[in-house]
């Protein structure tokens, strides 16, 4: 019988893990796991999730606790998966399917398509193009930012394949942005360097992360909120280090 609990716990945590790893909110992860477990009629279930870890305990009929800790190392934002897993979760709570079926369903969702690199590059280019115009840049500024968007995606992909950490990637990318933006303005290819820089940097800056962290704090997930805030501050620091360094270098290269 404990085997059954083990299996159920495994699959419930798998569902929560898929949600957390693809950018769902903390409360959604906790609620989903708890609802799934309670739907199967267990005596009790406790879930504690933070952005890097899920801890779940389920109680069997003898009030013995079975606990599982799942650590999360890599995170992306994939709302297609979040939506699919959310649907799956609702379906599980209604129909209470066999745990083995849940596993196969999760595998099916994991194999759903994501945008290939060329479309990601397209997204980076369009986003930095749009944001430069949005912040008041001219059309030539925007095209400069568009090229920068392509470059930083390529650099990020190259560095990710070399297993670099996110901090270093942000330092390098923001440095590239500032250096090239100032260079193009120096050679009169574009007008305002700060519009290009901030437009292209929107791809890196953790604006959504800082907002979400405050949301977590207001919602009562204090630990999660603080973790995300620290993360966001570290990203912002990395970007400022990179851009600050590049500004200094460009003074020597292009005289300001």
């Amino acid at each position: 019988m404990n085997d059954w609990y083990q299996q159920l716990l495994n699959q419930a945590v798998n569902v929560g893990y898929a949600l957390l790893a693809n950018g769902a909110e903390i409360y959604r992860v906790e609620e989903s796991i708890q609802r799934i477990l309670l739907a199967y009629g267990v005596k009790g279930a406790e879930v504690f999730a933070i952005p890097t870890c899920i801890t779940t305990t389920v109680f069997n009929e003898n009030n013995e606790a079975i606990t599982q800790i799942r650590r999360l190392y890599q995170k992306t934002t994939n709302f297609d998966t979040v939506e699919q897993v959310n649907d799956l979760c609702r379906h599980i709570c209604q129909d209470k399917p066999d745990p083995a079926w849940i596993e196969s369903e999760l595998q099916r969702i994991a194999q759903r398509p994501i945008y290939p690199l060329k479309w990601l590059i397209f997204g980076y280019a369009v986003a930095s193009f749009g944001f430069t115009l949005f912040f008041g840049g001219s059309l030539s500024d925007a095209f400069c930012a568009l090229v920068l968007g392509i470059i930083i995606r390529l650099v990020a992909t190259a560095m990710e394949s070399l297993a670099t950490n996110a901090f270093f990637i942000n330092v390098v990318n923001s440095g590239i942005i500032a250096l090239i933006a100032l260079g193009t303005v120096h050679f009169s290819l574009a007008q305002s360097a700060d519009k290009i820089i901030i437009g292209a940097l929107m791809l890196l800056v953790p604006g959504v992360a800082i907002t979400n962290s405050i949301r977590d704090v207001i919602a009562g997930d204090l630990v999660a909120g603080l973790m995300r805030m620290t993360e966001a501050l570290m990203v912002a620091t990395a970007i400022a280090v990179g851009a600050g360094g590049a500004l200094t270098i460009s003074q020597y290269l292009w005289g300001g």
């Binding site: 950018g23 934002t77 994939n78 709302f79 297609d80 998966t81 994501i114 945008y115 479309w119 990601l120 397209f122 997204g123 980076y124 280019a125 369009v126 986003a127 930095s128 193009f129 749009g130 944001f131 115009l133 949005f134 968007g149 929107m202 791809l203």
Partner: peptide, 18 residues
Amino acid sequence: PCLYAFIACVGFDFLYNI
């Protein structure tokens, strides 16, 4: 400005696999 915001959001949708 709203059109520019729209364009920027479309770009980000690709990052979020929408």
